[in-house]
Design a binder for these strands. Structure first.
Lengths: 77, 77
DNA sequence: GCCCATTTGTACGTATGTATG
DNA sequence: GCATACATACGTACAAATGGG
Protein backbone atom coordinates (compact mmCIF):
# COMPACT_ATOMS: atom_id res chain seq x y z
CA UNK A 1 0.00 0.00 0.00
CA UNK A 2 2.74 2.39 0.98
CA UNK A 3 6.04 2.56 -0.84
CA UNK A 4 8.83 4.10 1.21
CA UNK A 5 10.92 4.31 -1.94
CA UNK A 6 8.23 6.01 -4.01
CA UNK A 7 8.42 9.66 -4.95
CA UNK A 8 5.27 10.64 -3.10
CA UNK A 9 5.68 11.73 0.53
CA UNK A 10 4.70 9.04 2.97
CA UNK A 11 2.13 11.21 4.71
CA UNK A 12 0.38 11.83 1.38
CA UNK A 13 0.52 8.16 0.50
CA UNK A 14 -1.04 7.31 3.83
CA UNK A 15 -3.69 9.99 3.41
CA UNK A 16 -4.54 8.47 0.04
CA UNK A 17 -4.87 5.00 1.51
CA UNK A 18 -7.13 6.20 4.30
CA UNK A 19 -9.17 8.30 1.89
CA UNK A 20 -9.72 5.21 -0.22
CA UNK A 21 -10.70 3.12 2.77
CA UNK A 22 -13.22 5.75 3.70
CA UNK A 23 -14.53 5.95 0.16
CA UNK A 24 -14.99 2.20 -0.08
CA UNK A 25 -16.60 1.92 3.33
CA UNK A 26 -13.80 0.07 5.06
CA UNK A 27 -14.11 2.89 7.55
CA UNK A 28 -17.80 3.73 7.51
CA UNK A 29 -19.31 7.16 8.25
CA UNK A 30 -19.41 8.21 11.88
CA UNK A 31 -17.13 5.34 12.82
CA UNK A 32 -13.61 5.85 14.10
CA UNK A 33 -10.58 5.32 11.94
CA UNK A 34 -7.87 3.32 13.70
CA UNK A 35 -5.88 5.14 16.34
CA UNK A 36 -2.67 6.92 15.50
CA UNK A 37 -0.75 4.26 17.36
CA UNK A 38 -2.32 1.38 15.44
CA UNK A 39 -1.90 3.14 12.08
CA UNK A 40 1.67 3.76 13.06
CA UNK A 41 2.12 0.04 13.65
CA UNK A 42 0.17 -1.14 10.60
CA UNK A 43 2.12 1.06 8.20
CA UNK A 44 5.36 1.18 10.15
CA UNK A 45 5.48 4.94 10.16
CA UNK A 46 6.47 7.48 12.74
CA UNK A 47 3.79 9.05 14.84
CA UNK A 48 4.30 12.48 13.32
CA UNK A 49 3.86 11.08 9.84
CA UNK A 50 0.51 9.54 10.75
CA UNK A 51 -0.61 12.76 12.39
CA UNK A 52 0.34 14.71 9.29
CA UNK A 53 -1.73 12.38 7.10
CA UNK A 54 -4.75 12.75 9.33
CA UNK A 55 -4.37 16.52 9.27
CA UNK A 56 -4.68 16.35 5.51
CA UNK A 57 -7.95 14.44 5.75
CA UNK A 58 -9.20 16.76 8.44
CA UNK A 59 -8.50 19.77 6.25
CA UNK A 60 -10.48 18.04 3.51
CA UNK A 61 -13.35 17.53 5.90
CA UNK A 62 -13.15 13.77 5.48
CA UNK A 63 -12.69 13.18 9.19
CA UNK A 64 -13.07 14.99 12.44
CA UNK A 65 -11.02 14.49 15.55
CA UNK A 66 -11.97 14.62 19.19
CA UNK A 67 -9.08 14.61 21.60
CA UNK A 68 -9.20 11.70 23.96
CA UNK A 69 -11.78 9.86 21.87
CA UNK A 70 -10.53 9.37 18.39
CA UNK A 71 -10.78 10.41 14.76
CA UNK A 72 -14.09 9.76 13.06
CA UNK A 73 -15.20 9.49 9.47
CA UNK A 74 -17.34 12.46 8.55
CA UNK A 75 -20.99 11.74 7.75
CA UNK A 76 -21.87 11.65 4.04
CA UNK A 77 -22.68 15.03 2.58
CA UNK B 1 6.69 37.61 22.97
CA UNK B 2 6.36 33.87 23.41
CA UNK B 3 5.55 32.28 26.71
CA UNK B 4 6.60 28.65 26.99
CA UNK B 5 4.55 28.35 30.16
CA UNK B 6 1.41 29.85 28.71
CA UNK B 7 -1.63 27.77 27.88
CA UNK B 8 -1.53 28.53 24.18
CA UNK B 9 0.49 26.14 22.01
CA UNK B 10 3.84 27.56 21.01
CA UNK B 11 3.19 27.18 17.31
CA UNK B 12 0.03 29.27 17.63
CA UNK B 13 1.83 31.86 19.72
CA UNK B 14 4.51 32.10 17.07
CA UNK B 15 1.94 32.32 14.30
CA UNK B 16 0.31 35.21 16.16
CA UNK B 17 3.62 37.04 16.51
CA UNK B 18 4.43 36.65 12.83
CA UNK B 19 0.90 37.62 11.84
CA UNK B 20 1.27 40.80 13.85
CA UNK B 21 4.64 41.59 12.31
CA UNK B 22 3.13 41.20 8.90
CA UNK B 23 0.15 43.33 9.82
CA UNK B 24 2.35 46.14 11.13
CA UNK B 25 4.74 46.00 8.20
CA UNK B 26 7.75 44.64 10.03
CA UNK B 27 7.66 42.05 7.29
CA UNK B 28 6.38 43.95 4.26
CA UNK B 29 4.38 42.48 1.39
CA UNK B 30 6.31 40.42 -1.14
CA UNK B 31 9.33 40.34 1.13
CA UNK B 32 10.58 37.21 2.81
CA UNK B 33 9.95 36.41 6.42
CA UNK B 34 13.05 35.18 8.21
CA UNK B 35 14.15 31.65 7.47
CA UNK B 36 12.98 28.77 9.56
CA UNK B 37 16.44 28.45 11.04
CA UNK B 38 16.65 32.07 12.12
CA UNK B 39 13.12 32.06 13.56
CA UNK B 40 14.08 28.91 15.39
CA UNK B 41 17.03 30.74 16.90
CA UNK B 42 15.23 33.99 17.64
CA UNK B 43 12.41 32.27 19.51
CA UNK B 44 14.36 29.27 20.72
CA UNK B 45 11.91 26.80 19.28
CA UNK B 46 12.29 23.49 17.55
CA UNK B 47 12.27 23.42 13.78
CA UNK B 48 9.01 21.52 13.64
CA UNK B 49 7.32 24.10 15.80
CA UNK B 50 8.37 26.92 13.47
CA UNK B 51 7.23 24.96 10.44
CA UNK B 52 3.89 24.34 12.10
CA UNK B 53 3.43 28.06 12.72
CA UNK B 54 4.25 28.90 9.12
CA UNK B 55 1.79 26.28 7.90
CA UNK B 56 -0.90 28.09 9.84
CA UNK B 57 -0.09 31.37 8.11
CA UNK B 58 0.07 29.62 4.76
CA UNK B 59 -3.38 28.15 5.30
CA UNK B 60 -4.59 31.68 6.07
CA UNK B 61 -3.07 32.95 2.84
CA UNK B 62 -0.84 35.35 4.74
CA UNK B 63 2.34 33.94 3.26
CA UNK B 64 3.42 31.76 0.40
CA UNK B 65 6.41 29.46 0.39
CA UNK B 66 8.82 28.49 -2.34
CA UNK B 67 11.07 25.56 -1.50
CA UNK B 68 14.70 26.49 -1.78
CA UNK B 69 13.96 30.22 -1.70
CA UNK B 70 11.96 31.12 1.32
CA UNK B 71 8.61 32.17 2.69
CA UNK B 72 7.17 35.45 1.46
CA UNK B 73 4.53 37.79 2.74
CA UNK B 74 1.50 37.68 0.48
CA UNK B 75 0.69 40.86 -1.44
CA UNK B 76 -2.11 42.99 0.00
CA UNK B 77 -5.55 41.97 -1.15
C1' DG C 1 27.37 21.83 -16.40
C1' DC C 2 28.98 21.40 -11.62
C1' DC C 3 29.79 22.39 -6.80
C1' DC C 4 28.19 24.82 -2.74
C1' DA C 5 25.52 27.40 0.59
C1' DT C 6 20.93 28.40 1.84
C1' DT C 7 16.21 27.25 2.56
C1' DT C 8 12.18 24.54 2.78
C1' DG C 9 10.22 19.61 3.00
C1' DT C 10 9.87 15.14 4.93
C1' DA C 11 10.65 11.70 8.41
C1' DC C 12 12.22 9.65 12.45
C1' DG C 13 11.99 8.62 17.52
C1' DT C 14 10.85 10.29 21.87
C1' DA C 15 8.79 12.81 25.81
C1' DT C 16 5.24 15.10 27.99
C1' DG C 17 0.59 17.29 28.27
C1' DT C 18 -4.48 16.98 28.02
C1' DA C 19 -9.01 14.92 27.37
C1' DT C 20 -12.09 10.97 27.60
C1' DG C 21 -14.17 7.06 29.59
C1' DG D 1 -6.86 6.05 39.54
C1' DC D 2 -5.98 4.15 35.19
C1' DA D 3 -5.82 3.11 30.23
C1' DT D 4 -6.50 4.99 25.81
C1' DA D 5 -6.12 8.54 22.42
C1' DC D 6 -4.97 12.83 20.47
C1' DA D 7 -1.84 17.29 20.85
C1' DT D 8 2.31 19.54 21.31
C1' DA D 9 7.22 19.86 21.30
C1' DC D 10 11.87 18.54 21.01
C1' DG D 11 16.16 17.31 18.45
C1' DT D 12 17.98 15.26 14.56
C1' DA D 13 18.89 13.67 9.82
C1' DC D 14 18.52 13.72 5.16
C1' DA D 15 16.13 15.04 0.72
C1' DA D 16 14.93 18.54 -2.70
C1' DA D 17 14.85 23.05 -4.75
C1' DT D 18 17.05 27.45 -5.59
C1' DG D 19 20.64 30.60 -6.78
C1' DG D 20 25.41 32.12 -7.09
C1' DG D 21 30.11 31.31 -8.42
Amino acid sequence: MIDPEGPEPLYLQLAAVLRERIRTGVYPPNRPVPSITSLQQEFELARGTVIHAIEVLRDEGAVRTVQGRGTFVAPPT
